[in-house]
Simulated assay, not measured.
Amino acid sequence: MLNIVLFGPPGAGKGTQSEKLIAQYNLAHLSTGDLFRKHLGEGTELGKLAQKYMDDGNLVPDSVVIDMVKDKIASTTDAKGFIFDGFPRTVPQAEALDQMLGEFETTISGMVALDVPDEELKARLLERGKTSGRADDQNEEKINNRIQVYKNETLPVAEFYEQQGKFNKIHGVGTIDGIFSEIRGVVDQF
């Protein structure tokens, strides 16, 4: 199986690039954001709990996220692989993901990390906020908090995969197709 962790701060282009990776490699998309929105749309208790944290620009607790992810993996056993978009966000989540994948007799093939300067992230998120309807993309204070939370809590995940020899950094500024070409060059080596 080809299992890719697509990594980067909010606004780095993970959603855009994951769509292209899914089409290119026929992967199942596992986005915690999508899982949260599904639960929110259905009004589940997990969805309500996740919304409270997301509205404040904070991470959803690991136990909630891990339960959602494990359910998704278990229900998608015929996939050629997964693209993990926005997950894992903490080292304990990365460790739990490794353990879960081991139960399914597979591993993470590699991490692709999109590197984008903070000012570019802010501009992208504010622009996305004009059309997305997402409150956390329309408020600069919340955007700054999300970027800081990423740096403090999520960035250590890159080191976790670097220690496993699975970390690959891609400059995330340029054309969508140009960035995707660089990503493909890395993924084709997995």
Rank of each mutant, 00 (worst) to 15 (best):
Glu103Pro: 11
Val64Tyr: 03
Leu30Thr: 00
Ile4Cys: 09
Thr16Lys: 07
Glu120Ser: 05
Ala23Arg: 14
Glu119Gln: 14
Ala50Met: 13
Asn26His: 12
Leu114Asn: 00
Glu141Ala: 15
Arg146Phe: 02
Gln164Thr: 09
Thr76Tyr: 08
Thr16Phe: 09
Glu105Phe: 02
Ile143Trp: 09
Tyr25Cys: 10
Pro156Cys: 04
Ala94Asn: 05
Ser181Leu: 09
Leu2Tyr: 11
Ala158Ser: 05
Phe190His: 00
Phe104Leu: 06
Gln51His: 11
Thr131Asp: 08
Pro156Phe: 13
Asn3Glu: 09
Glu42Asp: 04
Asp71Phe: 14
Asn139Val: 04
Val64Asn: 04
Asn26Pro: 08
Val64Ile: 12
Ala28Leu: 15
Leu59Tyr: 07
Gly102Val: 05
Leu101Ala: 08
Lys130Met: 04
Ser109Arg: 10
Asp34Thr: 10
Phe36Val: 01
Met68Thr: 00
Phe104Gly: 08
Glu162Cys: 00
Arg146Tyr: 08
Ile176Trp: 13
Ile108Leu: 01
Val65Cys: 07
Gly174Leu: 04
Gln99Gly: 14
Thr154Val: 00
Val65Thr: 14
Ile22His: 08
Ile108Ser: 03
Lys130Ile: 02
Gln17Phe: 13
Lys169Leu: 09
Gly102Phe: 12
Gly41Val: 14
Ala28Arg: 15
Lys166Ile: 06
Gly13Ser: 10
Gly11Asp: 12
Lys169Phe: 06
Asn144Thr: 04
Leu21Gln: 05
Ile183Gln: 02
Asn168Arg: 09
Gln189His: 08
Leu101Gly: 09
His39Glu: 14
Tyr150Arg: 07
Gly15Met: 00
Val69Trp: 10
Lys169Asn: 03
Gly81His: 13
Gly15Asp: 03
Val91Pro: 01
Thr106Ala: 07
Gly172Asn: 12
Gly8Gln: 04
Lys142Arg: 15
Ala79Phe: 06
Phe82Thr: 10
Asp62Met: 14
Ser31Asp: 00
Gln148Lys: 06
Leu6Gly: 05
Lys80Asp: 03
Asn58Gln: 14
Leu59Asp: 02
Val5Ala: 09
Ser18Tyr: 03
Gly178Trp: 12
Val64Pro: 06
Glu45Trp: 02
